[in-house]
Design a protein around this nucleic acid. Structure first.
Lengths: 259, 259
DNA sequence: ATATAATATGTAATTTTTACATAATGATAA
DNA sequence: TTATCATTATGTAAAAATTACATATTATAT
C-alpha cells in the first residue's frame, strides 16, 4: 500500500485523456506550492517547460492506488528529493473554466499533443513548507528547469497557477497564527531575527523585535542554544531550536497563538 | 453554463462505475454537511436509505459540465429546496480506504448492485450553513427519509461520514472566530440570547452574557430593532439584524474578530 | 584600537479580555 | 389586579495581552 516511496514514471503528470482506464484517476490532479525561505524571501518552486519560457507549478494526477496525501508527497519528493515534509491541503480548484485550455494546448503543443488534454480537470491544491537548504530542485521529463522564485516576483504562469499561489499564501497567513510555521520553513537551528524576518515576509508587514522576542519566548516552545551563529557581520545572534514535544503538546490543546 | 438551477436526475448520486464515460466525473464525489440551528442544537441533515436504518450524508458525483461549487449547491438545493446558501469547501477525503467498501456493498445491495461501486472514490467535503426554518428536507430516490439530527447525537453512519461531520464541526469552530456564522445560521431577525446560544453550542462551552453583548455590539455589524420577540415566556428580548454592508466591508479588511 | 551595524533586552501605556451581580421586564399564576 | 417567575439587559473593576518605544551589547571590519 506504500506507493509513496516507490516513485513513479514521472512522465505522467498532466491531466491527459490517456489516463482513462489506466493507473490514474481521470480528470483529477493536484498541484503543489512548495515553499521555502531564503535570504529574507518566501520562495516557491517552479518548473520551466521544455523549449519554452513558460513556468508552472509541480503537480499531476493521482494514482488509483495511492491516497491523495501520498500523491502530494510523491510529487514533492520527485521535485525536491525530500520526504516526511509538512504538506497541507488548502483548496480545491474546480471551476469549469479554471484556465484557458486552448492557450495551454497551443503553448505546449510541441510537448503534449493537443488532443490528449481533458476537457476539464479539477485540481487539489497543497502547499508544502520545506527547509530551503535541503531541497535539490529537480525538473521532470516535461521541463528543462526547476527553480526557486521569490513568491512576490513570480511571472505569469500556465493554468490558474498564479491564483493557486495567491490562495496558498493567504491560507499560510492564516496558519501562521496557530501553527509553528517556522519549524517547517527554517533549518533545525535558526536565529530569532531569522524567525522574525520569516514572519514579516509572510505577513507583509514589519514587527517590533522586542515584542517578537517576548511573544516567541513566552510560548515556551523555543530553546536557546549556547552557541551563536558565527560568520555573519557584526554581533553574532544566538541560535534557537524548536522543542518538538512542547509545541506538539500545546498544539493538541489548541493553546498556541503566535500573533 | 448555469447548470446549478436546472436540477438533475437525482437518481445518480453515488460513486458508481456507470458514471464512466457519461455525464459524470468518475471516482470523485462531494458530500455536504448541511447545518442548521434549532432549539439550542446544531443539527445536521441526514438521509435514511430505503428499507434500512442506515443513515448517511447528502452528496454525490460532479457533472462534467458544472463547477464543484455548483455541484455542491445543486446537492444542497435538492435536499433543502434552498438556493444562494453559504457553502464552504473544508476538506478532501482521499484516503485509499476511507471506508469499508464491502460493508457498504452488503448493506445497500438491495438498492445498488454490488458490482457498480468504484473500487475507490475521493470526496470533497462541503458544509452549508442554512436557516433551519426555511429548509424543506427532501429525500432522494435512494432514501426514505431526510431528517435533522442533533450533531452530537448522530448515529453511526455509512461511509466515513461520521468523520466528515467531526471535521466539519472543527472547521466551523475555526470559522466562528472571523466569520459572521450567525448571519447564515439564524433567521434574518434574531435575539441576542439566540446568537449567544449558537456560539455556545458550536464552541461547546458557555459564554458570559455581558461580555458577549459587549463583544457583538462592539463589532458594529448588528442593528437593534424597535420590536421585541413576543410570545416567549418572561421578558421579551430585543430583535437584532445583521448589517450586511457593514460586516462585508469589515470582512474584506480582515477586521472582524468574534471571539 | 575604533567604528560599525545588527543583536538583545525592559518598562510604561493602551487595549482587550475576563470576572462578576443586579435591576428591569413581560408572561404566568394566584 | 397583583405577585411571582425566569429571562433579559446592562456596568465596572481586575487581569491579561498587546503595543509603543530607546539603549547597551557585541562580533566583525577597518
Amino acid at each position: 500500500m506504500k506507493i509513496l516511496s516507490l516513485g513513479m514514471p514521472s512522465k505522467v503528470r498532466l491531466p491527459l485523456k490517456s489516463h482513462t482506464n489506466t493507473l490514474w484517476i481521470p480528470q483529477l490532479t493536484l498541484d503543489c506550492i512548495i515553499l521555502g525561505f531564503h535570504q529574507g524571501q518566501l520562495r516557491v518552486l517552479l518548473l520551466r517547460w521544455k523549449g519554452t519560457q513558460e513556468w508552472s507549478l509541480p503537480g499531476g494526477p493521482i494514482r488509483k492506488d495511492e491516497s491523495i496525501d501520498a500523491a502530494a508527497a510523491r510529487v514533492l519528493k520527485e521535485r525536491t528529493c525530500l520526504e516526511q515534509i509538512y504538506l497541507k491541503q488548502y483548496h480545491v480548484f474546480g471551476d469549469l473554466h479554471r484556465y484557458d485550455k486552448s492557450e495551454i494546448q497551443e503553448k505546449l503543443s510541441h510537448i503534449i499533443p493537443r488532443e490528449v488534454w481533458y476537457d476539464r480537470a479539477i485540481s487539489i491544491g497543497y502547499y508544502a513548507l520545506v527547509d530551503y537548504s535541503r531541497v535539490s530542485p529537480t525538473p521532470d521529463v516535461y521541463t528543462d528547469e526547476c527553480q526557486w522564485w521569490d513568491i512576490h516576483e513570480v511571472p505569469p504562469l500556465l493554468f490558474d497557477h498564479n491564483e493557486m499561489i495567491a490562495m496558498a499564501l493567504k491560507a499560510l497567513r492564516m496558519e501562521l497564527h496557530w501553527q509553528p510555521v517556522g519549524y517547517n520553513l527554517l533549518p533545525d537551528q535558526f536565529t530569532m531575527p531569522e524567525l522574525q524576518r520569516l514572519y514579516e515576509t509572510i505577513l507583509g508587514r514589519t514587527l517590533d523585535a522586542r515584542n517578537f522576542y517576548k511573544k516567541m519566548l513566552g510560548l515556551e516552545i523555543l530553546e536557546r542554544l549556547k552557541e551563536r551563529r558565527r560568520g555573519g557581520a557584526y554581533k553574532a545572534p544566538y541560535l534557537y531550536r524548536f522543542k518538538k514535544e512542547a509545541y506538539e503538546a500545546k498544539l493538541k490543546e489548541g493553546q498556541l497563538s503566535f500573533l
